[in-house]
């Protein structure tokens, strides 16, 4: 097996072959997930703990289902309500869990780098389910799988990522992944939501959405992250919708067969017209959710294989 990482913390350090390996394996899980008998055994006997320090419904459900379908015992910890509130540090929480011998930790945290920090302190495999504004690797992988299935390839495409780039870990992971796979990336949005130095990431930046969407194959919308904003980034949601909300008129600039994506949850009528989101000819938003489970199964399968291999080595030494 070519790809045998200890953790999956981000896309930044993956190679194109690693990415392809995950996507290929995920394809098999897409098929499995569509069957009535959905059980795989890759994580049989293993314990998976989901630690979400930020509220999440869909990502947590997706990881939980992925783990259960692979045969793991899955434990969901709602961290917002527990020890952190009592003053325990992230590392102490991690060490406590580590002592219970889990095999897989799935972690989401509001601060960038927190999952890296945690991974240095535990023995099991750590999967980053989103850290601050840093990375959200499984989202980028599921987006890639969705694109590959819709377009037949994941290279040499024109892809526009639109909206709140500054606060988005999804955007960062996607920029890394799509660049590694040799696509042309455009970022579209107000200058206040473009992080500084973004021009050094191999992207083209557009303020005007009509120009930005011209002839693209894929339109990736991002959620306007109102909870991460600490001040004046945009004057109002209606002005934002007028200039950067995805409407039929703006979408008409893209290629006729362009697909529309959104990581969810959507603010209908803010960044995307409800009508487009529901258009089965253009929107692949529901498919993204489906691919999410498959990609997470693939990622955990590979991490489990790595974990088993390392344990065998440890025993033989």
């Amino acid at each position: 097996m070519a790809f045998s990482p200890k953790h999956l913390l981000g896309i930044e350090h993956l190679s194109p072959t690693d990415i392809t390996a995950i996507l290929d394996l995920a394809e098999t899980y897409v098929d499995l997930n569509r069957k009535e008998q959905k059980q795989g055994g890759a994580l049989a006997g293993m314990t998976q703990v989901n630690m979400f320090f930020e509220n999440s419904t869909r990502t947590q459900a997706s990881f939980e289902l992925a783990g259960k379908r692979l045969g793991a015992d899955v434990l969901n910890l709602a961290m917002g309500a527990s020890s952190i509130k009592k003053g325990e540090t992230l590392i102490d929480t991690a060490m406590t869990l580590n002592a219970m011998n889990p095999d897989m930790l799935v972690v989401r945290h509001p601060h960038s780098g927190a999952v890296d920090l945690l991974s240095q302190k535990v023995k099991c495999a750590v999967l980053n389910a989103g850290d601050g504004r840093h990375e959200h690797p499984t989202q980028a992988l599921l987006d890639a799988l969705t694109i590959r299935r819709a377009k037949g390839r994941i290279h040499r495409l024109n892809i526009a990522i639109c909206g709140d780039i500054a606060h988005s870990r999804v955007a960062r992971s996607n920029i890394f992944l799509l660049n590694k796979m040799e696509n042309r990336i455009r970022l579209v949005g107000p200058q206040t939501l473009m992080p500084s130095g973004i021009d050094k990431f191999g992207v083209e930046v557009y303020d005007d959405m009509n120009e930005g969407l011209k002839d693209v194959d894929v339109v990736m919308m991002l959620r306007l992250q109102r909870e991460r904003m600490d001040g004046a980034f945009i004057p109002s949601e209606r002005e934002y919708y007028y200039r950067w909300g995805l409407t039929r008129e703006k979408l008409a600039n893209a290629k006729d067969d362009a697909i529309v994506m959104h990581p969810g949850p959507m603010n209908r009528g803010v960044e995307i017209d409800g009508d487009i989101a529901d258009d089965i000819n253009r929107s692949v938003i529901q498919e993204q959710v489906e691919m999410g489970v498959a990609v997470r199964m693939a990622a955990m399968d590979l991490l489990a294989q790595g974990l088993r291999a390392r344990r065998r080595e440890a025993v033989s030494v």
Partner: peptide, 16 residues
């Protein structure tokens, strides 16, 4: 306010 890095490509990559 709230900043813990100097703005630029590195801080953007790290998401700080």
């Amino acid at each position: 306010r709230g900043a813990c890095a100097t703005s630029g490509a590195l801080a953007t990559k790290l998401g700080l």
